[in-house]
Design a protein around this nucleic acid. Structure first.
Length: 616
RNA sequence: GCCACCUUAGCUCAGUUGGUUAGAGCGGCUGUUUUGUAAACAGUAGGUCGUCGGUUCGAAUCCGACAGGUGGCUCCA
């Protein structure tokens, strides 16, 4: 951490105290939980009894905070023995603090395992043996706190309270729900403004808003929440990205399979998913037999059955299947969000069954494919090696885990990946490489994933005949390059703000007629025919509106190319395409032959370029 | 699922303290116009005010339940 980062951290943390202080002034009965620093700001968890905060209270709280800041009270640090601290918390009627202190006393920091390491860090020193705890005091406010803080309340920079929401005490849904007040804070007003501007931009690009404006997908109360319906335009996006992901893997020898969308519960009992995710499965009953089915939540057990359908030889390996497959998960309603968290989604899934010594090669091919894919999407990739932690809930031998994790890290090193390791992010059946894409606003999203799996081959008893006639287990490698098509689109729509490159644009060219005369209608009809032959998505707007209005309509739909057709164009058979601003090198004025124009656009679509090759 | 907030026409939104036939812009449709690179003009049709129940002489407005949504929490194979 740089010195500046340290300062921002201290500033944000100090603001959390100041906010708690202000809230205590306004509501003296307030009981405080934890108040850590988060990305871009801070929050504090507060129990106000029957009082519920709303954003309308922010003015009042902010005013009180500014008063405290104006007084420039010094932050004073002091220590107390744990027992005295506990007595303090009891006297101050701060039961949450008292609970934390008791846990600290009992077993240092680790016992408060409801809290993440970060949150713990803000309330206590990291030593396992806690005898004394530190406090910070400003004005009339004292809080159990590890620090650090700025010297005084006057030195906290620019801030704004953002929102209030519910949050469980210590992040456990069985615990009491507190109110969490979020604020953002930066060193200067300018930095704050820049950040708030970014939030505004994010709002403008929200894929849910663009999905409606650009007519990409809809939801229906009758179909149900979390079940998106894709319109013709949105379906183009789905199918184009679906084609790309399959092409990239076909090159590496993956072949397409098709499997049904339901399976007997026995399949998932065998795979282990039933035990782990049973409450998130949609159940389907036969009306004729006693069979119980589930709507498939994932595809690996299905693909495993294809592998298991016949004896396999080492000569068959690696055996590689892929399927853009629809999956269904009964997510809790409160967790649904646009296309990024849905109950029906499509994984661009693949499974490679490989011998142990082929793991690295196959995984490397997939990493290469993902790099190519995200360069087509113009997004940067980081790689997160998601390993297990010490928790339970992981299946398989510890030794296997360590072996595979070592292989993954080796692969990452050999391929010079920009990677970092995160423990506790693994799947229950194996470690993963998760791919984090950075979008145009600098936000990181998890997209693709490559996952090693030694557990399912074991559970389903998969094997192959080796050269020496032994029967080793294959290793399974799960990979989805897009992740889920829906989730990917939610990220990509916001990344591009709906300005899709030609190869993805639901409508690539809009033809705008100047009038409705017979010759015009005939000519635009001819353009339409030729575009169809080239596989272009072209729409003719012959409506009885002004040219200006029709141009505007095309712009609002973010169509890459618009061409106006009047007498001049009909005579010369040439057009001056109007190019969407983000693609144009410069606005052109020179006419281009109609046929050449269409061919150029068709080539752009085929080669999946971001920008136009027409120099205007 | 939990906490808070929200739901008026296809979309974006008005609608005073509960009080007659609920409004506007855009979009749609019809007509006039035949348009040259981001909004021609006129007319017209769209709403059981999310649903169901309650309070009231009277409910878009107050209360409750449910559904859907928003922001978080929790979860995420």
């Amino acid at each position: 951490m740089s010195e500046q980062d340290d300062h921002i951290y201290a500033m944000r943390h100090s603001l959390a105290h100041i906010m708690a202080n202000a809230i205590q002034h306004i509501w003296p009965e307030a009981k405080f939980g934890v108040g850590p620093v988060v990305n871009h700001g801070f929050y504090y968890d507060i129990d106000l009894g029957d009082t519920t905060l709303s954003e309308e209270d922010f003015d009042k709280i902010e005013a009180e905070m500014r008063k405290i800041i104006g007084e420039d009270q010094p932050f004073e640090r002091f220590e107390k023995p744990v027992d005295e601290a506990i007595a303090w918390a009891r006297d101050a009627k701060q039961p949450y603090k008292e609970e934390l202190l008791n846990d600290l006393k009992r077993a240092g920091t680790t016992v408060a395992k409801d809290l993440s390491a970060d949150e713990m860090g803000t309330i206590a020193a990291g030593d396992a043996q806690i005898e004394r705890v530190s406090f910070y005091k400003n004005g009339d406010f004292t809080d159990l706190c590890r620090g650090p803080h700025v010297e005084s309340t006057g030195k906290v920079g620019a801030f704004q309270l953002q929102r209030v929401s519910g949050a469980y005490w210590r992040g456990n849904e069985k615990n009491a729900q507190m109110q969490r007040v979020y604020g953002v804070a930066f060193e200067t007003e300018d930095d704050l403004k820049t950040y708030l501007g970014m939030l505004e931009e994010a709002k403008r690009r929200d894929h849910r808003k663009l999905g409606q404006e650009l007519d990409l997908f809809v939801f229906s109360d009758l179909v149900g929440s979390g079940l998106p319906l894709f319109t013709p335009r949105g379906t183009v996006l789905r199918e184009e990205v679906g084609k790309l992901t399959q092409e990239l893997r076909e090159r590496n020898g993956f072949t397409r399979v098709w499997t049904p969308v339901i399976a007997k519960t026995d399949l998932y009992k065998a795979s282990g998913h039933w035990d782990k995710f049973g409450d998130e499965l949609f159940l389907v009953k036969s009306q004729e037999t006693s069979d119980e089915f589930v709507l498939r939540p994932m595809n690996c057990p299905h693909h495993v059955q294809i592998y298991a359908s016949q004896p396999r030889s080492y000569r068959d390996l690696p055996l590689k299947f892929m399927e853009n497959a629809g999956d269904y998960r009964d997510e809790k309603t409160g967790e649904l969000h646009g296309l990024s968290r849905v109950r029906s989604f499509t994984q661009d899934d693949s499974h490679a069954f490989v011998a142990e010594d082929q793991v690295k090669d196959v995984a490397t091919e997939l990493v290469e494919a993902s790099r190519e894919m995200y360069s087509v999407f113009d997004m940067e990739l980081k790689f997160r090696l998601s390993f297990r932690d010490d928790g339970d809930g992981y299946l398989g031998e510890r030794e296997l885990w360590e072996k595979t994790q070592a292989q993954i890290e080796e692969l990452a090193k050999e391929n010079n990946l920009d990677y970092y390791i995160e423990e506790g992010e693994a799947a229950f059946y194996g470690p993963k490489i998760d791919f984090m894409a950075t979008d145009a606003l600098g936000r990181e999203w998890q997209v693709a994933t490559v996952q090693l799996d030694f557990v399912q081959p074991e559970r389903f008893g998969l094997e192959y005949v080796a050269e020496d006639d032994s029967r080793p287990r294959p290793v399974m490698i799960h990979c989805a390059l897009l992740g889920s098509i829906e989730r990917f689109l939610s990220v990509y729509i916001e990344h591009t703000a709906g300005k899709f490159p030609v190869w993805l644009a639901p409508e690539q060219i809009r033809v705008i007629s100047v009038n409705q005369e017979e010759s015009t209608v005939a000519f635009t009809g001819k353009i339409s025919e030729e575009a169809k032959k080239l596989g272009l998505r072209l729409h003719v707007d012959n409506s009885n509106e002004s040219v200006g209005k029709k141009i505007r309509a095309a712009e609002l739909m973010k169509v890459p190319y618009a061409v106006v057709i009047g007498q001049k164009e009909i005579e010369s058979e040439a057009v001056v395409p109007r190019v969407r601003k983000d693609m144009a090198v410069q606005d052109g004025e020179d006419p281009i032959g109609l046929e050449e124009f269409l061919k150029t656009v068709a080539n752009e679509a085929k080669s999946r370029v971001h920008k136009t090759s027409l120099n205007g």
